[in-house]
Simulated assay, not measured.
Amino acid sequence: MASLPETPTDAELITRVLLRDDRRAFGELVARHQTAVRGLLRRLTGGDLAQADDLAQETFLRAYRGLRGYRGGAKFSSWLYRIACNVFFSRDRGSRDALPEPPALEAGSAGLALPDLVLERHDLEKALALLKPRERAALVLTYANELTHEEAAVVLDCPVGTLKTHVARAKEKLRRQLEEVP
């Protein structure tokens, strides 16, 4: 009985792309990670699917062009999240006055379940709109994408202490905002 071929690891696919310019291998990496990258960007852009798709496309283009820069020290998905956040922040720099709408939290999705805050969806969306983009990113990465503080700090290219500060400030802002909700 013939055995099924093993699914190649991310590292094996990356090697094929780098050594043979294997675009199918890169396509498999995209297929493997696009849902998570688009989900992150959708939350950061306030549920704007078109903008999230545009940013995801830019993320994967940058990843392809910069694949030689991936050192393997972090998970490939974390490296992609870092590119996605940089793409989002660079877009956001052009529109600092206009904060993006709050992330849309869909039923059944991995929303932002903050353990010490019991939140109504609508109230949470309004409160998230008041967060700075890096605070929102810190919350999304640690709660919705379930990264450790260390992983999220790598993604956001900041010290772990700074990441923890972003998370703590964001949670406190959410708490204050939600206390005002009747």
Rank of each mutant, 00 (worst) to 15 (best):
E150Y: 02
S3F: 14
P182A: 11
R169N: 10
V30P: 01
I14E: 01
K132E: 10
A36T: 04
A152D: 00
E150A: 07
L141V: 05
V30H: 13
F89D: 01
E150L: 06
G66Q: 05
A31F: 00
A153F: 06
A74C: 05
H149T: 03
L163V: 03
G111A: 15
E6P: 13
A25K: 03
Q177E: 15
A52H: 09
A129R: 13
P102S: 14
T9Q: 07
G46S: 10
L130T: 09
L130A: 11
V37Q: 06
R68P: 09
L55H: 07
L114T: 08
Q34W: 08
A144Y: 06
A113R: 05
L19M: 13
A137C: 07
L80P: 05
D157K: 14
A113G: 14
E106Q: 07
D157H: 10
R43A: 15
Q34E: 12
R134I: 12
N86I: 01
A138S: 06
Y70G: 01
R42D: 10
G108L: 01
E151R: 02
R23G: 05
V37R: 04
R38E: 11
P182R: 12
R42C: 10
S95H: 11
L112W: 07
A104N: 06
P102T: 05
A63N: 06
L119D: 08
S78L: 06
E28C: 01
L49V: 10
L174F: 06
L174W: 05
S90M: 11
D22G: 13
T59H: 03
V87I: 08
E151N: 02
T15C: 00
R65F: 03
T9K: 06
F88W: 08
L124M: 09
R62D: 06
D92W: 05
L49E: 15
L41P: 04
R71N: 09
E172I: 05
V30D: 10
V160C: 09
S109P: 12
R24V: 06
G46C: 08
R43Y: 15
L40N: 04
R62S: 03
A63W: 05
P182G: 15
H149F: 14
P133N: 09
K75W: 04
K171N: 05
T15M: 03
A152G: 05
Y143L: 03
A50R: 15
E120R: 12
D21N: 14
L178K: 04
L4P: 09
K173V: 13
A113Q: 14
L117W: 12
L156Y: 07
G27E: 10
A2G: 13
T15P: 00
T35G: 15
L163S: 02
R169H: 11
Q177S: 15
L174I: 06
L13C: 02
Y143K: 07
E120Q: 11
A170P: 04
G46Y: 02
C85E: 08
K171G: 01
P133H: 10
A110D: 09
V154C: 13
D21S: 10
L163N: 02
L147R: 05
A127P: 04
A74P: 01
L156T: 10
R24T: 09
A129D: 11
Y143H: 12
E172T: 08
R176H: 06
G47W: 03
E150F: 01
E125N: 08
L139A: 10
R121I: 11
R136H: 10
Y143A: 03
A11W: 01
E172Q: 11
R71W: 07
